[in-house]
Nucleic acid binder design. Structure first.
Length: 495
RNA sequence: GGCGCAUUCGUCUAGUUGGCCUAGGACACCUCCCUCUCAAGGAGGAGAUCGGGGGUUCGAAUCCCCCAUGCGCUACCA
């Protein structure tokens, strides 16, 4: 087999979504596995749909996932340029060549006529062909007239009227189409820009792309591409049509499915490691049990043979679980400081405004060990640990009425805490010792006592381990909060 | 409507040339253990007559045919 060269060829019409980027990932994994090249090519041939900033967001998404490209925007390469809008002369040249060899023709039909024609066909429920081939048989004289009148024209491919076109798909096997189903697709639009079909064939040829791995939605147009290669006298690449990623409603993923853009996942606190791993599992599997795999492992094992044929629905729950796995793994392998470093931006943006900025990184490193295994997304962190940063706790005094303890006992318990925590060491073992003996003296079970103090000190019922939490909060803050809780209890006349 | 592709637990999937599948794993769900709460972790449970119907075969989720359903394409969009 020749050198492996694959490409990711997005069109800059918006933020890449999960499906787009999964295609990029598969191409990248394949290239890295085979020691080949991963090319990024921007297919900006639709002037109308172009979106400002889209290229940047595409590259950002790739960078975030760590999908480095060997050729393409910013890095260049020997096969450039990598923006189709800069290769117009190439496409025009081959459109002209096809015209001259009689394999294409000029079409002067106005798009209004075409859409009207399609509407009528649909109305009559006719076997729809998108174009009635009117200009295919235009006499040279008539064509000349239209030309001299300045009627704009597109160049259409003269598709064979009969026979069949077949090709091997690496994932689906042999695919066959009757040529009678094919229409005369436009190669060059009247504005001089190529359509996807022409541009993709010309570019893949000249960029020496060996494998075209693209979404399933392209399967239907592949025979036209194969025919185009033949018309140009070129050898087509190998094709692998990837199963699509569907929205929860099982339809093609689009903006209307909510959180689908890749960058959004970054902003919601997903780790790139988890994202890469999870995306790789959408349509590909190593075996019947291995799921958590790092980048290197993915590269080592990736193969087209193990790509599945069936479309997949994106399962957010599982992604979140996997992100949790990676968070814990990150702490294990790279330590708390690294986790804190990644968490910091989310704290900066997610903690209440009244918390002083910048957030103290040193302090965060002491807190995150208590929180990292209680969170699946970095963005969940602020809400989970905000009480470490607030001066005034805001909570319902009713929470202080713990099950198994009446108001009087609670008041006595808080007073006991205040008394005994005023001096002596304030590390978590010392605190625990004090609290346990206090429970014993008051004839209380430890559980309810701890629950009461938990609410007093954090304002909530679910928190990291109490004594560690108190140690990090520090004696002063704990005492102040215990006093405040006491005051709340005393002033309340609740039953 | 036409064409193409697909169809295994709710979801992601394993199921190499038919037998080891009374269909395996994971997420989510439930129970229990651990435990100061919440998590994490551990152990279990429930959940798929492999879309349906016909074949072929000693034997089929795996091969063939038909049907159904879903999705995709059917643009001078990609």
């Amino acid at each position: 087999m020749d050198r492996v060269r694959v490409r990711y060829a997005p069109s800059p019409t918006g933020y890449p979504h999960i499906g787009n980027i999964r295609t990029a990932l598969f191409n990248w994994l394949f290239a890295r596995h085979m020691g080949g090249s991963f090319i990024v090519r921007i297919e900006d041939t639709d002037q109308a749909r172009k979106v400002e900033g889209a290229v940047e967001s595409i590259l950002d998404s790739l960078r975030w996932l760590g999908l480095d490209w060997d050729e393409g925007p910013e890095v260049g390469g020997r096969y450039g340029p990598y923006f189709q809008s800069e290769r117009l002369d190439l496409y025009q040249r081959f459109a002209r060549q096809l015209l001259e060899s009689g394999q294409a023709y000029r079409c002067y039909c106005a798009s209004e006529r075409l859409s009207q024609m399609r509407a009528e066909m649909a109305e009559r429920k006719e076997a729809a062909r998108s174009y009635d081939r009117r200009c295919r048989s235009l006499s040279p004289g008539k064509a000349g007239d239209l030309e001299s009148q300045g009627v704009p024209s597109a160049i259409r491919f003269k598709a064979p009227l009969e026979g069949q076109t077949a090709f091997q798909d690496l994932i689906r096997g042999e695919i066959t189409f009757d040529n009678s189903e094919l229409d005369d697709l436009v190669l060059l639009k009247s504005d001089g820009y190529p359509t996807y079909h022409l541009a993709n064939v010309v570019d893949d040829h000249f960029m020496e792309v060996s494998h075209v791995m693209r979404a399933d939605e392209w399967l239907s147009s592949t025979p036209r591409h194969v025919l185009l290669y033949a018309a140009l006298g070129w050898r087509p690449p190998l094709y692998a049509h990837l199963p699509m990623i569907l929205g929860p409603d099982k339809s093609k993923l689009s903006k209307r499915h909510g959180a689908t853009s890749v960058v959004e996942y970054r902003d919601r606190g997903f780790l790139t490691e988890a994202m890469v791993n999870f995306l790789a599992l959408l349509g590909w599997a190593l075996d019947d049990k291995t799921e958590v795999m790092g980048r290197d492992e993915l590269i080592r094992h990736f193969s087209i043979e193990r790509i599945s044929k069936t479309a997949a629905i994106f399962n957010q729950d599982k992604l979140q679980w996997m992100n949790g796995v990676y968070i814990r793994q990150l702490v294990e392998k790279q330590g708390h400081a690294e986790f804190a470093r990644r968490a910091l931006p989310f704290l900066e943006s997610g903690l209440p405004e009244r918390v002083k900025r910048p957030i103290d990184g040193e302090y965060v490193v002491r807190i995150t060990p208590l929180a990292y295994e209680r969170v699946n997304l970095l963005s969940e962190l602020p809400a989970r640990i905000d009480f470490f940063f607030l001066d005034e706790l805001d909570y319902d005094a009713g929470l202080l009425v713990v099950k198994g303890m009446d108001r009087e006992t609670a008041i006595a318990a808080l007073r006991g805490c205040l008394q005994r925590l005023g001096g002596g060491p304030f590390d978590h073992t010392a605190i625990e010792g004090v609290m346990r003996s206090l429970a014993e003296e008051l004839g209380l079970k430890p559980g309810p006592l701890f629950g009461l103090v938990r609410v007093a000190v954090t304002g909530r019922t679910a928190t990291p381990p109490l004594f560690e939490t108190m140690a990090v909060l520090g004696r002063d803050r704990c005492l102040r909060r215990l006093e405040s809780a006491l005051a709340r209890l005393e002033s309340s006349h609740a039953a």
